[in-house]
Simulated assay, not measured.
Amino acid sequence: MTTQTVTSVPAYAAPAARAPLERTTISRRPVGEHDVLIEIKYAGICHSDIHQARDGWGEGTFPMVPGHEIAGIVAEVGPGVTGFAAGDRVGVGCMVDSCRTCDNCRAGLEQYCSDGPVYTYNSTDRGGETTLGGYSTHIVVDAAYTVRIPDALPLDAAAPLLCAGITLYSPLVHWKAGPGKKIAVVGLGGLGHMGVKIAHALGAEVTVLSQSLRKRDDGIRLGADHYYATSDDDTFKQLAGSFDLIISTVSAPLPLDRYLALLRTDGALVNVGAPEEPVSLNVFSLLAGRKTLAGSGIGGIRETQEMLDFCAEHGLAADIELIPADRINEAYERVLASDVRYRFVIDTATI
Results as ranks from 00 to 15, higher is better:
M1G: 14
T3L: 09
Q4G: 08
A13R: 08
T24C: 15
I26S: 03
D35E: 06
I45C: 05
R54D: 14
W57Y: 15
P66A: 07
H68K: 05
I70M: 01
E76P: 12
E76Q: 15
V77F: 00
V77M: 06
G83S: 09
A85V: 11
A85I: 05
D115V: 08
Y121K: 09
D125A: 02
D142F: 01
P150S: 01
A158Y: 02
A158W: 04
L161H: 02
L162M: 15
W175H: 14
K176N: 14
K176H: 09
A177P: 11
V185K: 00
G187D: 09
I198H: 03
G203Q: 04
T207Q: 06
S212K: 02
Y227P: 11
K237Y: 12
K237D: 14
G241N: 13
I246K: 00
V272D: 04
E276G: 14
E276F: 01
E276I: 13
E277S: 13
S280P: 07
F284C: 13
L287D: 05
A294I: 05
A294V: 07
R302N: 15
F310Y: 12
C311S: 09
A318S: 15
L322Y: 04
I323S: 10
D326Q: 09
A337W: 02
I346A: 00
A349G: 11
T350M: 04
